[in-house]
């Protein structure tokens, strides 16, 4: 569209300006500031305040053992919860797609964990997985699977397991809705043709359903990978990094370094490393998506 009159140009600017202002002030400026900070010696109470540090902060982050654990935890969280939610969500979507009645009812029920806030579900999971909680009672006293109560939140892998279970449980409904919509858009003729050829239902799923819903699968993959790297509230509420910072993720560790330890330069470098890692990951996924579509 060409803007002809002066009035139209002014009105166009009036519509564009608020968005640009918000962007410039609250995102672009902070990104630039963060980048600058990551090259400064900036510790609360240090005498070398805000002097240039070169790549020292980056070096400090990359050689920090706790950062390595946090990065590992984040990767494991992402690699476990993303496929976990997608497979369960897709399975539920296929089931719901194939039943004659109560489709909407099931969709609503499965979506309830998605809309319940992270703070609330984290607290409920913490309560259930407490050493004296309901789950241990079931495992020890009812099912007799363990001799004594499991201290879920006292070990790295116990804590991570609880947080990952929560991540999967909370995400299934979202995947279900995305995949159900995709399933409904697959033309029925494809299935009919396959039936004429004598395809079984498993065969139909892999040769027709999966390829047809590929855009939805890739959309979910990109969104959930971003979501996996964002994990914060559940860790904060359930383990708070305990024991001994063994269950930190990149963002909780960054938060700790900035707001508890006061090491802003370090935290800024860490933030930048996380942002760049995620940009690269998303870029690779987008590229894979493009290649597959060609």
């Amino acid at each position: 569209m060409q803007l002809r009159s002066r009035r139209d140009k002014l009105q166009f600017s009036a519509l564009l300006l608020p968005g640009i202002l918000v962007f410039a002030l609250f995102t672009i400026y902070p990104i630039v500031k963060l980048f600058g900070m990551s090259f400064l010696r900036w510790d609360l109470g240090s005498m070398f305040d805000k002097s240039f540090a070169g790549f020292d902060n980056y070096r400090a982050v990359l050689s920090d053992k706790t950062f390595r654990i946090a990065f590992e935890n984040t990767l494991i969280y992402t690699f476990v919860t993303v496929p976990g939610q997608m497979i369960l969500g897709l399975f539920a979507a296929v089931l719901i797609h194939s039943i004659p009645r109560f489709r909407v009812t099931f969709r609503v029920i499965y979506y309830i964990p998605v809309i319940t806030s992270w703070v609330i579900v984290s607290l409920v999971f913490r309560y259930i997985f407490n050493t004296e909680g309901m789950l241990n009672y079931l495992l020890t006293n009812v099912l007799h699977l363990t001799a004594k109560n499991v201290a879920w939140l006292n070990t790295r892998w116990g804590g991570m397991t609880v947080v990952m279970l929560l991540g999967i449980w909370k995400g299934v409904g979202w995947n279900l809705v995305v995949f159900l919509a995709a399933l409904q858009s697959v033309p029925n003729e494809l299935y009919e043709a396959a039936e004429v050829d004598g395809c079984g239902s498993v065969n139909k799923f892999f040769s027709i359903t999966l390829p047809s819903i590929k855009p939805a699968i890739l959309f979910a993959l990109v969104m959930l990978t971003i979501g996996g790297f964002n994990v914060f509230t559940s860790i904060k509420m359930i383990t708070d990094g305990k024991p001994m910072h063994q269950t930190e993720t990149v963002l909780t560790w960054m938060y700790y370094k900035a707001f508890s330890a006061g090491q802003f330069g370090y935290a800024a470098a860490l933030s930048f490393i996380v942002a760049v890692t995620l940009m690269i990951l998303a870029f690779l996924q987008f590229k894979a998506m493009k290649n597959q579509n060609e």
């Binding site: 962007f23 002030l25 609250f26 995102t27 672009i28 400026y29 902070p30 990104i31 500031k33 963060l34 900070m37 971003i226 790297f229 964002n230 914060f232 963002l251 960054m254 938060y255 900035a258 802003f264 935290a267 800024a268 933030s271 930048f272 996380v274 942002a275 995620l278 940009m279 998303a282």
Partner: peptide
């Protein structure tokens, strides 16, 4: 591109400069 990019970067990574702001 910025709109897309900001959908990818975790908001929490910007929390320090945003706090200063």
């Amino acid at each position: 591109a910025l709109v897309i990019g900001m959908m990818i970067i975790p908001g929490t990574t910007l929390i320090i400069p945003q706090y200063q702001l």
